[in-house]
Design a protein around this nucleic acid. Structure first.
Lengths: 126, 126
DNA sequence: CTAAAACTGAAACCTTGGTTGAAGTCAACT
DNA sequence: AGTTGACTTCAACCAAGGTTTCAGTTTTAG
C-alpha cells in the first residue's frame, strides 16, 4: 500500500494538452477557483493529473447550461486533487445530474403548458 | 367550427407581461428571428398570443444550454404562430429533448471516464 | 382633439467566458 | 552560462445575450 504520493507536477502546457483546453481558459478557471494549482518557488503553476479530469467535467457541465459560478459550487465540495477518490466523483456526478434533472423538469413543464389538457397556451381558442 | 381566426393583435407590453420577459429581450428575439411579429401601419409590432408560449420555451431552452442560434434552428421549423397546432409543439418538444439527451450523454460519458473500469483519469496510479 | 401610455430604432453600456498580445521571468538542456 | 521554450501578469479586445437611455412616433382613452 505504499502509494507513490503523486505530487502535483504537471505544467501548463501539458495540462492544456491533456484536458484539451487552452492555457488562457485554464488560468481563467484558476482565477475563478474552479481548479486547484500549486506554485513553484518561481511562481509557476503546477497541477495534479486529476485536474485534467476536473477540467473535462467542467466543460461538459458548461454544455449542460451551468455557469462558472454554479460549477464552482460543485467543485468547492471536492477535496484537493491528490485526495480525490472514486466516491468523490460519484458524488460530483450525482450533484450535476440532479441539477440537470431539475432543468429538464422545467423544460418539460414548460412544454406541458403547451400540450397538456390544462394548457395555458392552447392554440385553438376553444 | 367558425373559429374567430384569432388575429395577431397583442402588443409589446402585454406580450412582455404574459411571457415574463422584458421588451428589450423580445425585440432581441425578433431581430434574431426566434419569434414572428407582424406590424401595424405605424410600424409597431403585433404578436399572436401563441408567441408568449414560444418565448417561455425559448427561456427554458436557454437554461438547458442551447444558444440563440441553436434555438432558432428549432423555431424555424414551426409554422407561423396562428397556424401552430398541438402536433407542432410535440415535434418541437422531442427535438429539444433529443438535443438535451445528447448533452446528458456527453456528461455521462465524461463522468464515466472518471469512474469506469477503463478510466483514463484513474485517481490512484494503480 | 389632446394628453398619456405604449412603441420605435439607434447607440451606448453591462456581464460572462474567454482570447490575444506585450513585456518580463523561470526552467531545462547543452 | 546561455538560449530556448514554457510560464507569469496585465490590459486590451471579442462575441453572446441582453439592458438602458434617448429622441422621436403611434395608439388609445377621455
Amino acid at each position: 500500500m505504499s502509494a507513490p504520493a503523486v505530487k502535483a507536477s504537471i505544467g501548463m502546457r501539458e495540462l492544456a494538452d491533456r484536458s484539451g483546453v487552452a492555457p488562457s481558459a485554464i488560468r481563467f478557471y484558476d482565477r475563478n477557483g474552479l481548479i486547484h494549482a500549486e506554485r513553484t518557488s518561481g511562481n509557476q503553476r503546477r497541477f495534479h493529473e486529476t485536474t485534467a479530469c476536473v477540467i473535462k467535467v467542467i466543460r461538459v457541465a458548461q454544455r449542460v447550461g451551468l455557469s462558472v459560478a454554479e460549477i464552482r459550487e460543485l467543485t468547492d465540495r471536492l477535496p484537493p486533487p491528490e485526495r480525490i477518490g472514486l466516491d468523490d466523483w460519484f458524488r460530483f456526478r450525482s450533484a450535476l445530474e440532479d441539477e440537470v434533472r431539475q432543468r429538464i423538469a422545467a423544460l418539460n413543464s414548460a412544454l406541458d403548458d403547451l400540450t397538456g389538457d390544462t394548457a395555458l397556451c392552447r392554440v385553438p381558442p376553444a
